[in-house]
Design a protein around this nucleic acid. Structure first.
Lengths: 174, 174
DNA sequence: TACGAGTCCTTGAATGTTAAACAAGAAAGG
DNA sequence: CCTTTCTTGTTTAACATTCAAGGACTCGTA
């Protein structure tokens, strides 16, 4: 059950294409690593920066943006999260004084999320520790070839899941 | 800020080893793919099976176990989640009638989580759709070499993060 | 036997996430 | 214009996760 394919039966129309034993091992390794890694980084950042990994990522995106600001929707798209989730997250970061909002002059619906100096300072203080954690957990353990391979693989998977995939709204044309 | 390494300065003791531009790209791809993938599978399973991905994984582990049962701690370890999280999760699955608990006779502290027939039935009904989703998102997009590589890489990362790592409680001996 | 330390699992509160519905403004097309 | 439709961002409530604490039990050892 689950992902098994024990029966030596050729795939038929209604019999689903179960994962092979080897595919299962790959998938399980992926799930385990992804779970452990996110957990590890969440804990590390919660301890050292007082926020979960996703929130940290939001601050990073803002810090990298011109004038340290982004429109809410844009930030949500970059971070691969929903606007709803972003609304909650920014509300929390605002309470911490790490982000502030500003109305968009050209679009009265719009809001900018802006990294404050305090927010920047938190990032400056905690970034080294976080990079270390990422190195220790991932890069230091992989050969250069594996790093390259990981990049390619994840790029492919990410592209396949982008909601903004070209022609995503016209699937019958693909 | 964040992960950048723009300065052509050799790494010193106090200057943290920032990620190179290439490492950054790899890391971002990983984060994006992992976020999108977990999100995608959560949505797929929430829609088709009425539960998030992690919960589905719990049912799968139980289904694969002898007598469809596991001790709570063991299940938590396999699923890479905390016992607290598992307690809440099993409570919810119990409400759905998909899992039931049973006391362990040999250890009065212990509890078994047991997959019910209804739980098994949910799995039987929804597993094909889920495997399809995993295939479409991951395996169908990767070459056999990439699949193999992904497995190796994730196995390495997972091993490095196992709380049960041999000697993990004696790090000064390593 | 009795003590102390460790294990097993749960609980409740605080925090974070989701899904659905909504209000306000922009844009497109008559 | 004016209406319809889309976009932007928020809100609420239900749900999920984490953290810290605690109750119940087991095990090693004196």
């Amino acid at each position: 059950m689950g992902y098994m394919n024990t029966a030596p039966i050729p795939p038929s129309a209604d019999e689903p294409r179960w994962l092979t034993a080897e595919e299962q091992r790959v998938w399980r390794s992926y799930i385990e690593a992804a779970t452990l890694l996110e957990d590890h980084l969440d804990r590390q950042l919660q301890r050292d920066a007082g926020m979960p990994h996703v929130y940290y990522g939001l601050l990073v995106k803002l810090a990298e943006s011109p004038r340290r600001r982004l429109r809410m929707t844009e930030l949500a798209r970059y971070a691969k999260i929903t606007r709803s989730r972003l609304s909650h997250a920014i509300a929390r970061l605002e309470k911490n004084g790490w982000v502030r909002r500003e109305d968009c002059p050209s679009d009265k619906r719009g809001q900018f999320a802006i990294l404050t100096d305090e927010g920047y300072e938190v990032l400056r203080r905690t970034a080294p520790g976080h990079v270390d954690a990422v190195r220790q957990a991932v890069f230091d353990r992989l050969t250069p070839e594996q790093q390259k391979s990981l990049g390619e693989i994840m790029r492919i998977v990410a592209e396949g899941l982008q909601p903004s995939e070209a022609g995503a709204d016209l699937p019958w044309l693909r």
